[in-house]
């Protein structure tokens, strides 16, 4: 498996959970180090394991910084990239209204391009449940976009 491709996927996954570039990079690197210490090398299909390690590290990070809620204006900072177009800003606003699980599903499927079977294993769901929830999340997002439009 391509290390660079895996790095990008895990970094994005971590970034959209911790909302901080440096922390996301730390988590990504820690994920790789832990994985390689245990399994030695990265092979096809190991991406699922990397997601699991990264997910657990993100949870550890939430626990560490738990007492500090995000300021109101920063709550959407995940999607607040300054040079974004109007369309992108609209879809980011719509995405921020979805549940974190739905956002994670959309990220894994549409951004990282993971197969439904892989997502099912990462999220501990059946393939059917993943398809159904993905469809519902897309439908939900589409409705919000139509309302915004």
């Amino acid at each position: 498996m391509d290390y660079e491709n895996a790095y990008d996927k895990i970094y994005k996954y971590a970034y959209f959970r911790v909302r901080d570039r440096a922390t996301a990079e730390d988590i990504t690197q820690e994920t790789f180090l832990r994985f390689l210490a245990k399994y030695g090398t990265l092979r096809e299909g190991d991406i699922r394991c990397l997601y699991t390690i990264a997910g657990n590290l993100c949870i550890d990070e939430y626990r560490r910084i738990k007492p500090e809620p995000l300021p109101e204006e920063d709550s959407g900072s995940l999607y607040a990239v300054p040079d974004s177009s109007e369309d992108t800003a609209i879809i980011r606003a719509a995405l921020s209204e979805l549940s974190p699980e739905d956002r994670e599903l959309l990220l894994l499927r549409h951004v990282n391009g993971e197969a439904v079977g892989t997502i099912a294993k990462i999220m501990n769901l059946s393939r059917f449940a993943v398809r159904r929830r993905l469809q519902a999340a897309e439908e939900n997002l589409r409705k919000r976009l139509e309302v915004d439009a």
Binding site: D8, Y11, F16, E25, Y79, D87, T88, R92, H110, V111
Partner: peptide, 15 residues
């Protein structure tokens, strides 16, 4: 494509 655009993250610096 819209979702991919919305989820654009800053480039990792230490990759």
């Amino acid at each position: 494509p819209l979702i991919r655009e919305a989820f654009s993250a800053p480039e990792p610096e230490m990759k």
